[in-house]
Design a protein around this nucleic acid. Structure first.
Lengths: 241, 241
DNA sequence: AGGCGCTTGTGAACTCGTGCACAAATCGCG
DNA sequence: CGCGATTTGTGCACGAGTTCACAAGCGCCT
């Protein structure tokens, strides 16, 4: 990640973090900008215009500029943005200057794949432990880590200072796992199980449901095929992410 | 899925589909309502109030009512919604009354897991074919399906009338795969590769990036830990999905 | 038959997000 | 040194989405 911590223009003076209260929509796009910036850095470019970065991230350039302006003024008019500086700045904002430890619960079909997903390691995270409720799976080595029983969660979470948990269990087990994660001090959960989790205030939950994504696409398919039999054109652009 | 196709109140008369031009935000929530409804149906309930369904789907009840009102008037005042009728209605709207064929490209770590994910089959989709560019993987049987070489894509897509494609390849290959899918007649793509795809007008793309989800959680972690050292309380609710 | 309690459906205010369009700032060149 | 080309940062208007609050409708009980 970042070596030097720039105290750029309008940088947070006196070591007090800014906490500029970013719009949620902006936060959701920052990771995309970050990925695009890393890609641009690899091609050897030192600076990039808002137009170029916006294209690489698949967004409107005005939106990108407004998003970045929320972090502070890190561009140079007439020139563009310093790629390395912007990478550092976004990584700091996202809290990626420290490599965060993640607990993964459920090493079934999907959990297995997640445990081996290189994208986590390369983008700021370290899968610190794997858990499962099935005693038959406990002890199994996956990607250099032994699966542990869910009952050890609290102990391991404390030892590894884990604050983020990933749930990749069947829906029926997900709420129990979420409760256990919260009890172990986890305050952010990524839920792959197709169900709603209830968690105490202060705990963030994000949900990824693969079937839902397909169902949304199905709707648009349905709509498109209905349109072909109607007079109006079939103008439709890629649906927002 | 649905057996009978109800022509409910204000139902589309004369076989002309309604196409009520649903707000995109509503479309994105319908699958969640559908999942909750199936769950409620399993518990034996025939009707459900907006309050109850909203709780099961994790949303505000006013929002739920407005969403459902876009599909037409399928509730009964003083009573609630007929569960079976609503399921049929949402499935029709999402185009799930036909089981849609899906092509999965890339049977690496993640693709393997997706190929075996039971949630697709149980929620309206049929993985019709698996593809990979690596000749070493071609022929490998996964979950009852043989992996085929990507060059066969167009042929198979036509034979199986595949309109939806899933990309689970490395980012470097994703654009080529997307081009091949579009050439094969696919008009909806679910992209798991961490990159922006460019596709012609009329093709829908949805992106799922697992690392991005974690990075968004990381931001909130970062923010929470910064807040603990500040005067104000740490009030924060679960972040929107 | 009539009234009462409950629940839906929706008008209206409000918040949030987006995109245009332009002023301000910076660089390079003559 | 000044001017023009270029690009950022942002004020403003617009549109989408959310939430409140309540009228309209339905069933049940007396």
């Amino acid at each position: 990640m970042s070596q030097h911590r720039p105290t750029g223009p309008n940088g947070r003076p006196g070591g007090v973090p800014a906490l500029p209260d970013l719009p949620e929509a902006t936060v959701a796009r920052l990771p995309e900008y970050l990925r695009a910036l890393h890609h641009i850095a690899e091609t050897g470019n030192d600076t990039i215009s808002s137009e170029g970065l916006a294209a690489a991230a698949g967004v409107n350039s005005a939106k990108l500029r407004k998003d970045l302006s929320h972090l502070g003024s890190y561009g140079t008019r007439g020139v563009g943005y310093d790629v390395a500086l912007l990478i550092d700045q976004i990584e700091f904002t996202l809290g990626l200057d420290q490599r965060r430890a993640v607990a993964l619960v459920g090493v079934g079909n999907l959990g297995h794949a997640l445990a081996g997903y290189a994208g986590f390691a390369s983008r700021g995270f370290r899968i610190a432990a794997l858990f499962d409720a099935d005693q038959a799976r406990v002890g199994e080595p996956i990607n250099g880590l032994d699966v542990r029983h869910i009952s050890e969660l609290a102990e391991v979470a404390a030892a590894e200072s884990i604050a983020i948990g990933v749930i990749a269990t069947p829906a029926a087990a997900a709420q129990d796992v979420a409760d256990a994660l919260v009890a172990a001090g986890v305050t952010s959960i990524l839920n792959f199980a197709p169900c709603v989790l209830s968690v105490p205030e202060g705990v963030d939950v994000r949900k990824v449901d693969l079937a839902i994504e397909l169902q949304i696409l199905s709707f648009h398919e349905h709509r498109k095929s209905a349109l072909t039999s109607l007079p109006g054109g079939l103008a439709e652009e890629a649906v927002g992410t």
